[in-house]
Amino acid sequence: MSAYSGELRKLTSLPSVWAAFAIGIAVPAVVGVLSAVSTSSAIANGSKPEAGPDLGYQELAFGVAGAIVLGVVAASSEYFTEGESAGSGRQITTSLTAVPSRTRFLLAKVAALTTAVVLMSAIATGITLSCVQAVVGDHAHALDGAAATRVPGVVLYWVLTALLAFGITLLTRNGVVPLAVLVLNTSVVTVTFLLSKVTPLAVYFPDLAGMRMFLTEVRVPVELSPLTGGVVMAVWVVLLLACGFTAFTRRDA
């Protein structure tokens, strides 16, 4: 328990973590409002009968960038030495002397990261969906009956993505590569979406599968149910975390 609160404290003391929160909350909210405004004017001038079912949720799929940054920073801050010029001032040495069991150390980190991401995604989802609802009004689907399953879907998607970023960073021990790969793949046209044009197997990539938990319109060759999508993504995360844990516990710090 003390390891968990230590990790939580470490996370909140990192400026990058607050930047990640800002990204995760501001991006979907601002873009969601912009989309909602253009949708409601389209409805008003009659060019669109009603808002699409994914309005608001689509934007939350991009806000996951905040969770990616959080996952990467949680792992890479242990290794990065910038700012302090002293030879080997890497935090990892201190961390491992404070919590000698590496597995316990990682589990505490995962728990702290999960806590932070649940909080961030809940705030982002609440703000984004209520803004969209406020702008579009009765025509929006943001908070209709399906929200009861879709909102937890968003939170789970963000948590799993953050853990994925965390696992990859443990493997690479460098935050730049996972940031580049994962943020690129959150872009408007994701790399995995492009690959789905080459092979239908691409729908089993963690992001395309996991999005099923809260998006209804994903134009890819194979349809997955929200449950299947979530399970596929979770399997990816478990596998990558297992690889990251193994690498971390076997390697010299």
């Binding site: 400026p15 990058s16 930047a19 990640a20 990204i23 991006v27 991009f62 960038a65 940054v69 990467v72 920073v73 890479s76 801050s77 990065f80 910038e82 700012g83 935050g175 730049v176 940031l179 580049a180 943020v183 690129l184 959150t186 872009s187 408007v188």
Partner: peptide, 15 residues
Amino acid sequence: RTIPAVAGLLVYYFI
């Protein structure tokens, strides 16, 4: 600092 700069720029350019 590398990570905040890379994160900020990538989020801007790609999202």
